[in-house]
């Protein structure tokens, strides 16, 4: 193998490894939810369900990464807790959304399937 080929391979490997070198996109996959009762002690019970909806809406659907193929999800953090406003016009309060954080990498084994998606993800 001559030096030129080795050089091209080295550059290609560098480009591949540094594609997301800055900060890979992250997704949050929710595993639990709870209404923060202290945020509105008088809130009716329905707020628990509203927090389920609120937290699920924050969650990425991991299947939408696995099913099309071309993506790898590597767990970056387990049990991360996000406190978010319930954001409902009829009742105030906050929700605690617990979930796992994954770094999203394009799978270089099947580059044709991911380029467009990867670009969109980076935006």
């Amino acid at each position: 193998m001559n030096k030129t080929v080795l050089g091209i391979m080295a550059v290609a490997a560098f480009l591949a490894s540094s594609a997301w070198a800055d900060a890979p996109p992250e997704i949050f996959v929710v595993t639990d939810y709870a209404f923060d009762r202290a945020s509105n002690p008088g809130a009716p019970d329905v707020v628990n369900g509203l927090c389920a909806t609120r937290c699920n809406a924050l969650s990425a659907d991991y299947q939408s990464y696995y099913k099309p193929g071309g993506w790898r999800l590597i767990k970056a953090e387990s049990g991360k807790k996000l406190v978010v406003d319930l954001d409902n016009p009829f009742v105030k309060g906050t929700c605690s959304c617990t979930g796992d954080v994954y770094d999203v990498y394009k799978d270089i084994r099947c580059p044709d399937t991911v380029n467009k998606g990867a670009a969109a993800e980076k935006k």
Partner: peptide, 11 residues
């Protein structure tokens, strides 16, 4: 923003 990952199906 999620469906873009499925573009490869119809490319």
């Amino acid at each position: 923003q999620d469906d873009v990952r499925y573009d490869s199906f119809i490319d």
